[in-house]
Amino acid sequence: MEEDDFNPEVVKRFMFVNRKAPYGTVYALESLETVLISAAFDQDVSVVFADDGVFQLKKGQDTPGINMKNFSPTFRALDGYDVEKLYVEKESLEARGLTEDDLLVDVEVLSSKELSKIMAAQDVVISN
């Protein structure tokens, strides 16, 4: 590793890529927890929702019937954790018949092409 990997002054670009639906598997919740923890390190964090990951942000989730915790309100706390870059892939939304109005937080909807550029500029990409 380069020496600057250990330098706390160096801010790196971290991107978390969420591609899984919530509840069916534990990936979505674990990724969210990882994002919250990583926010403590003052890095440049962004979160991407693509493929079935866009379902994580669907409004109106109501989980008592399946006896699981509804963690979707926590996405609204990300702003307070200074995680402000939330990207949603336009193609994934459209393939699922969703629009920005169906989502419970403000996001930036990007085409695959635009997202690809941002992804390529990251130092670390953590994918689920």
Partner: peptide, 15 residues
Amino acid sequence: EEYQIAPAIRVLTKA
């Protein structure tokens, strides 16, 4: 109640 998590200290202080 609002966010379903307990905030980290930094976030609590800011809020």
